[in-house]
Design a protein around this nucleic acid. Sequence first.
DNA 1: TTATAAAGTAAACGCTGTTAACCTATTGAC
DNA 2: GTCAATAGGTTAACAGCGTTTACTTTATAA
Lengths: 233, 233
Amino acid sequence: MPRRRQIELNEATREEIKATARQLMAEKGTAGLSLRAIARNMDMTAPALYHYFGSLDDLITALILDGFNGYADYVQHQRNEAAAAGMSIPQQIFVAMMAYREWAVQHPVDFQLLYGNPIPGYQAPTEITTPAATRMGQVFMELLMPGLETGEISIPEPQRTVPAQVKAHYSNKYGMEGETRAILHMMNQMWSFMFGLVALEIYNHTTPVVGDAVAFYEQATRSHLQLMGIKLD
Amino acid sequence: MPRRRQIELNEATREEIKATARQLMAEKGTAGLSLRAIARNMDMTAPALYHYFGSLDDLITALILDGFNGYADYVQHQRNEAAAAGMSIPQQIFVAMMAYREWAVQHPVDFQLLYGNPIPGYQAPTEITTPAATRMGQVFMELLMPGLETGEISIPEPQRTVPAQVKAHYSNKYGMEGETRAILHMMNQMWSFMFGLVALEIYNHTTPVVGDAVAFYEQATRSHLQLMGIKLD
DNA sequence: TTATAAAGTAAACGCTGTTAACCTATTGAC
DNA sequence: GTCAATAGGTTAACAGCGTTTACTTTATAA
């Protein structure tokens, strides 16, 4: 049986491997992710890594999990600071949406890892990644729901209708009904919009078209919030 | 100097290579794209392909170009049919947006090729791909601008403000001013939303969350159009 | 002290893109 | 008709990749 200290050493090595992987990806893009390159950077041989990760895919999954958590942590943290500064809920939502873009711009490779499929042959095991991916939704739900109660948010008419099949899914899977359900539905659409803006920018489809991606994102977000009945004043 | 017939033969082989590449990608995902696999499927050796494409990257660029064009063609065609059937401009916009999703769902690998970066080390040469990518925007601009004139579209208040830097870029690059410029700005945001919805579905982040991706997309689109002042009646 | 498990190695397999050297058949020009 | 040129193909090779196998070393638990 391995001792405590050994387990800690093993865990430390796992972290070092992931850190090296992230560094390589930051330098050379997702293409730079290779077991042999990681091993080379760590003065080891590639097969040794198999003592820490069952395969390259397992390593990627671990990186994705860390990514989702770090992403949600960052947005949550920015939101918390906004709350501590006494900002209104709509303002906190705006801050969170700005944070959503900031993280992606600062970690473009991680973003591609999370929401693209940049590694040949790799398919993320959704049963493992989905829980971590869902955390981001919770951050926004924790803003939208109180906002609805305080009256700072009023769901606009076109957003009140939820398709029957989707309605059923929300009820069965999340146990959500009524206005709470409508808010979840609205959040999913807001998320899609936000994601679309960010993903297009990360993949270089935005700047050539609008010139200034930051200004575009900021204004698009403001307009979207207003149209969604979230009064930024 | 090569003769006409030789040039045609060369062109035919190029098309056959691309077709084989598309077939392999459809079967095994973007990971299945490999020169050696293509050559194997064509009963050739890999180096022979270098007579037709300078490198794997060149082949990918050609596939991307075809993809953007086929994508725009499909959406344009669906829009034309809707127009021929006497649909209103808002309805044509709705049809075009449905078509945008349909093509992506039917060609998920191509979609990833166009808007992701699934090939290790490959970076799309934007000066080549951007013109083809922009065609899609034209399809929608050709709907929004007449819609504005007929009064079927009225730009909502929050959409009327365009950030200064973006405004300048629209003016300098596309020579657009006033309401035309506002429509271009709105179109870019509509596109982002549409893209977000579709990309999340293609990368399997939608169905686990909303249950029925088609119903979700349809309703989200309707709601978005209504909020954007496009009256679907 | 000794059996065991963890952590490392080298060698090999089959895959990849790409290059170099070479051959063959068709073509254009004289 | 002859001849040089060129398009289109071949094989062999290089360096890289993930992964497996067999083997060694080292630290630990009993």
